[in-house]
Design a protein around this nucleic acid. Structure first.
Lengths: 276, 276
DNA sequence: GCAACCTATGACTATCACTCATTGAATAAT
DNA sequence: ATTATTCAATGAGTGATAGTCATAGGTTGC
């Protein structure tokens, strides 16, 4: 078994194309002798004749015709497969699966990646935001190739690359009582309604870096799915939110909202990324 | 180029099936080392990773997944091709193209071949009766594999195998004036209408072996396409025909016809066959 | 911590794919 | 006819390389 090798398909095809075995050999960068030997071995092992030797040229037998048809069907597929693997090698193909543990980063990421995707149409790009076992889990299970997160898991041998700094700020409407404050202290939010993304509290910076340390809480917390919705609600005075300053600045032209520093020093964060 | 070989497809597939490279190696009758080496070489040449080495097992990369899909698609086709070539080898497949230069032999041939064809359904069988350059020409151009003819071409190095003897006889209706003759001489046909197959006179035995040597001719010759038609016409007394005795005997139960020897000694012929 | 698994790797080897040189045969040219 | 080309087949020899062996480096599970 396993008699048929690529060389045989190549040979049958080349002989058919170039007429003679000698020409075929040249086209394959081999000697006529090499092809003769390898085909003879195939013929022996299968105990069939591929060609009839008629004078000084070769005439395909029925089995040979069949083999030629097979070669014509399979070889292009092999070549195609190699080309595609080459594309993988050059990064021209494949799916870059990005996991994101920071909600508003999606828009930032799209802005970054759009020109790249336009240039490499065969590269696919997928963003996941829901992970069964957390971002790190997805990374290790090879569900994603890259994890973007504000909360890197600090374990030995686990290296995260800082991507950019940002400041987490409070967002209030332009006519909110706190609108002119340089900064706020936790107690000032005691009566507020806080809009957050639908993630656990331990991943919300305003809790971990601001409210919890002061043992304070807001009156109400409401979950909002999208960034736009959050700005809308804040803008019409229904509550406050905590978001990156760059995001607030971007939305400031669209909604009447104001960013305010959280605490005297502000809450400074970094976005990290880690490759699989 | 030409990096991808069968072993690589086999390996990827076997590893996927058996879980580990060691098990895959066993299934391919190779050592783990062999697979490791050959796959590493492929990875190097394509500069891609097929697997990620995770602890003590292998996880396919995207390129690897792609290669696996390719293997799953192509390998069965290769195996199938080998099987079919094997069938050619064992004579279980293929088309036996038989050329026939003797019209009524077709029925005889079908009787011979029917049981064989029933047993080997994947063997195809084709009979040609019209040749652009004659039976021998078709044979040498590999248009047919076997030539059945009553008129072998006697050339040096050209060997025909005699298949069976037959006697060419005159066929007349059961109430024909000649019906009781032991044999006829050419002159007795001077006034007859002769039915023949649509072939040139030099291939009609009644001319070459009977009429021509005596410089005689029939009054009329009419061409008939089928054997059945010929017997019908003879039976109702519209004329006579010259056919093999075995054929006349077969049809005698169906039509009221009588065979009569051509000349005192009869016209004895042989059917020959020759393989391509 | 040990045993039982993996895969990777270097060194060595045997195989076999390939080349070289030649033969034999069929065309084509003289 | 005779010779020159142009094929494929073939045997002998070799060189590349696919394979084995032995071992190292890891991970997993008991």
């Amino acid at each position: 078994m396993n008699f048929l090798e690529r060389i045989h398909l190549d040979t049958v095809r080349a002989v058919d194309q170039h007429g003679t075995m000698t020409a075929a050999a040249k086209s394959l960068n081999l000697t006529q002798s090499a092809l003769s030997h390898s085909m003879r071995k195939l013929e022996d092992r299968l105990s069939i004749k591929i060609w009839l030797r008629e004078g000084r040229n070769l005439v395909l037998t029925q089995a040979g015709e069949h083999l030629l048809a097979t070669a014509n069907r399979l070889l292009p597929q092999l070549v195609h497969a190699e080309e595609q693997l080459g594309q993988f090698a050059r990064g021209e193909r494949g799916t870059l699966r990005i996991g994101m543990e920071c909600h508003p980063c999606y828009q930032w990421l799209q802005k970054i990646t759009a020109p790249y995707l336009r240039e490499w149409p065969s590269v696919d790009f997928r963003v996941k935001q829901e992970f069964q076992f957390g971002g790190i889990g997805a990374l290790f299970a090879h569900k994603i190739d890259l994890l973007v997160t504000p909360d890197p898991l600090l374990r030995k041998g686990l290296h995260f690359t800082p991507v950019f700094d940002y400041e987490q700020v409070l967002v209030v409407s332009a006519d909110h009582p706190l609108r002119n404050e340089k900064w706020v202290i936790p107690r000032q939010l005691g009566d507020a309604t806080l809009f957050t993304y639908p993630v656990p509290q331990e991943r919300l910076d305003i809790y971990t870096h601001f409210l919890n340390p002061a043992r304070m809480a807001v009156r109400r917390q409401k979950v909002v799915e999208t960034t736009d919705m959050m700005f809308q609600l804040v803008a019409c005075g229904r509550g406050v939110a905590a978001l990156p300053r760059w995001l607030v600045e971007e939305y400031a032209s669209k909604y009447p909202v104001v960013p305010i520093r959280l605490g005297r020093r502000g809450v400074r964060k970094q976005i990290f990324s880690r490759r699989s």
